[in-house]
Nucleic acid binder design. Sequence first.
DNA 1: CGGTTACCAGTTTTT
DNA 2: CTGGTAACCG
Length: 682
Amino acid sequence: MNKIFDSLNDAQRTAVEQIDGPLLILAGAGSGKTKTITSRLAYLLDSVGVPSSQTLTLTFTNKAAKEMRERAMGLISQNSYPPLLCTFHKFGLLFLKFHIHLLGRSNTFVVIDSDDKKKILKKINADLPTALIASEISRYKNSLIDPTEAYAQAELTNYKHIAKIYEEYQAYLLDNNLVDFDDLLCLTYKLLDENNELCTQTSEKYRYIMIDEYQDTNELQLRLLQKLCSTHNNLCVVGDDDQSIYGWRGAHVRNILEFDQDFPNTTIVKLEHNYRSTQAILTVANSLIEHNRSRLGKTLIATKTGGEEVKVLSAHDESEESQKVAKEIRRLLDSGVRANEIAVLYRINALSRSLEEGLNRAGVAYKLVGGLRFYDRAEVKDLISYLRVITNVHDNFSLKRIINKPKRGLGKATIEKLELSAMAAGKSMFEFIDTLSDTELESLARKKSVGELRSFIREIIELRDIAEEAIYQFIDQLEKRFKIKETLKGLPDEADKISNVDEFYGLFRDYVKQNPEASLAEFLNDITLQSDQDQVEGESIYIMSIHASKGLEFEHLFVIGMEEGFLPLIGDGSDLEEERRLGYVAFTRAKSNLTLSSVNSRFYKGRRTELQKSRFINEAGLCEGSLILEKNTAYKKGDLVRHKIFGAGRVEGVSKSGREFKLLINFGGNKRDILASFVEKL
DNA sequence: CGGTTACCAGTTTTT
DNA sequence: CTGGTAACCG
C-alpha cells in the first residue's frame, strides 16, 4: 500500500484513488502517466481487493503494454493472477476466439496485415489505387458501415465503385476465413451490439477498465468502450489532448475533449507537474501549444528549474544543417555524453537522408528508428507465407506468394491459370494441384515445373506433420527443405536478408521454448499483431520521425527542418493544430537540451525550394538568433543593450539583415529595429 | 518466364 | 532525386 503511494504527487494520488465512475486523467508530457496508471491498477487489486480478472487495461502498442505490465507487476503483490493488459487489437483477437462462432464463423480465422490487405485489393480491382481503397474500407469499418450501406450512401460513381470493391473484399475474407486489423475491433463491437446478453456478461466481467493514450482512440473504439462499460461506467482513460498526432489516421481528438459528454459525471484530474524537462524547455513548449484553440488547457509545471536556453540554429541548406548538427553531437559525445542520450527528430522521413550523410561524415554512429518494420520485410513475409500455407493449405493467398520462391519455373500466367482452374473445380490451389494427374498438370504448367510442384506439395505436407508432432524440429526442417537462405544469395543486401531470416528463426525457436503447447497458427496470429519491438541499445544516437518519438525522452534533443512547409507540413488534409501538437510532442521529448534548426533552402522531391522559418519558432517565444551557435556576438531575447541615442533597452527579437544581426529593441516602450553593431551589450 | 526499362508519385504509422 | 510499379522484349 505504502509502496504504491510513496512516490505519488497529490494529483497522481487522487487519480489512483478515484476508482468508481468515469475518470479522465489529463496527463501532460512527462507527468508520470505510466506510473499513475500502473499504480492505479495495483491499488485496485491490492488495496480495493478487486479480483485481477475483473480489470481490463488497454493500450495501442505492444511496447506500451509490455512496459506497463512490467511496471504493474513490480507494484502488485505476488499472489494475484496477472490482470489482462494488452492492446485493443489483442483484446479483439481474444474476444473473437471465444465468440466469433456467434457470427457463424470459425475461430480458426487468420489475421492479415495491411500488406496482405493491399494485395487482396489489388487482385479485386485494377484501376483505383489500392492505398486509397484500403483506407476507405478502413474508414467504413471504423464507422461501422457495411458494404450494402456504403453502396447505398455513395453518390459519386467512384464511391459506388469503392463500395463494390469493399463488398468483394469482405466476401474474400469470409471465404478464406481471414480477418483484418479493423475486423478485430469492429467484429467485436458487432458481437456486443447484437447480443445483449453477451454484452452485459462481458461488461460485468470487466468491472474496471483503463485506457492508455485515449487521445488516439477513434469512433469505433469509443463505441466499443461504451459497450464494455455499459453496466458500470467504471472507465478510466489517460491521455493528453495536446499530444494527439494521429488525427490523419482516424483518431478523434474529440473523444478526449468531450469525454465528459460521452460519459456523464466524469471526474477530471490534471497531471501538470513535469518530471522530465527543464523550465527553459517547458516554457518554450507551453508557449507553442498555447496557440492552439481546441484544447482542454493545461500548463506544464517544471520540477527541474532553470536549464540551458533552447537554441535555434540556422543553416543555408540541408547539408550545412546536418553538418552543424553533427558537429554539435560530436562535441557532446567528446564531452562524455552517452550516445543513447542524444536524438535528432524530423517531421518527415525524407529529411533523414541528408542528416545521415552529415552524421556519417562526422563519424557519428546513429540508429534510425522506424522505417521498414521487421515483419514487413519481403524475406520475412515469405517465411510467414510458408508457415501460413503449412498451417492452412487452403490459403491461396499465401501460397501464391511462395509457390515460385525459390523459382519453380512458374510465372504470373501459370499461377493465374492454376488459380482459375482450381476455382472452377471448387478447390483450393493446393488441393487442386495435389489431386491432378501429371498429364493434367502438364497442360497447365511447364513440364519442368510439374516435378517441382509435386515436391513442393509433399514438403508442405511433411512439414505440417512435423509442426504437429515435433515442433522443435520445425525450423531446421523448413530451412533444409526449402533452402530459404540459399535462395537469398546474390540478391542485393544479401547479408541483411539472411540475418533477418536467422532472426526470424530465432524468434520462432524462442516462441516454441516459451509456449511449448502453442500451435503454428497461434504463433502466426501473435506475430501479426506485433510490431518492431527491437529496442537495440548500443553506442549510437537515435534519429527518427516525431511520430516515432512519442513516449520517448532524450537528454539532448535536436529537431531539424523547422521550416514552413516541413513543420508545419502544409498540404491537403493537413491540420495546423495537429502540426503544432507535433511540435509540442517533439519539444517535450527533451530533458535538458533542445536545439531547433532551420534552413533557407532544401532539396526535396527533385528540386531546391526556398523556405521560410517555421512560425512555430516565433510562437514558441524564440526568435531567429535566440542563441546562435558559434557566434559569440549574438544577442538573444531579454538581453540588455545600450544605444548612443536611445539609451538602455531590452532585446525583444533578433533577425538577420544581410551579414548583420538586426535587433528589435524596446527602449522603455519605444520599440525600434536596430543593427546589432550600433548597440553594446550591458 | 524473367529481366529490363519507362513512368509516376512523393507526410506522419500501429495493429 | 528516390523508390515502387507497370509495361515491354528476349
